[in-house]
Amino acid sequence: MTARPYNFAYLDEQTKRMIRRAILKAIAIPGYQVPFASREMPMPYGWGTGGVQLTASIIGPDDVLKVIDQGADDTTNAVSIRAFFAKTADVATTTDTTQATLNQTRHRVPETPLTADQILVYQVPIPEPLRFLEPRETETRTMHALAEYGVMHVKLYEDIARHGHIATTYAYPARVADRYIMDPSPIPKFDNPKLDDCPALQLFGAGREQRIYAIPPHTRVVSLDFEDHPFERTKFDAACEFCGAADSFLDEVVIDDKGGRMFVCSDTDYCQKRQEAQKKDAAE
């Protein structure tokens, strides 16, 4: 085996320990943002350094890593990060959700349901759900400590007043284990129900903001709403152009200069598998 120029998975062992301690704290207090000493990574802030540090701290040589960016395995972010870990950890990588032990994601939850021996790592830009209304960190910490969350509903109220319905369509705030309110990262609200009672461990990392939080397996996660404006899953008017799925999150793709568009599954692996299955069925 050739000597690696980097420590396994890039980070030094002490840093990994520090991050693992933060992860354990986060698991012990579901939804609570644990501060951690975020390291400088060989990619700029805003490119997933939080998620990368989480993955780097928990990945082992026998892990199989999948990385998606907005649901796709083949976009820049996903490709770079997968290559990063292939180089620094020499781990196996995959695009198949069912094969991965470790899934790192930016802004989507895979359509394929996860299992108890999987971990999902989210990349988070702004971890603080109260930040938009309360700029002071000292104040938001106190609000979390005292569970003073009235202001979160003010935001939803504003949406309804302005748009007639809750207009937040991503980064939709949710209450974890009936205690902390968290920002689930900019995943579409379509994905929020997947967070609830998930068999897999879900970890959230914000590199620039230096926070880690977690949802332990089978934890109750409830998206905020009003009694007379209950949380509703997004419904699409179309089905996937390629695989015909009517129950997955669709990307809108502009196909020409005349405004032509088509809808395609955002989760490329999910779509691929469905297409393969359909081909197989057709062949039989």
Binding site: E148, G150, V154, E227, D228
Partner: peptide, 8 residues
């Protein structure tokens, strides 16, 4: 809302 009112 801070006191728990949830009916818009």
């Amino acid at each position: 809302m801070a006191l728990g009112d949830r009916h818009y």
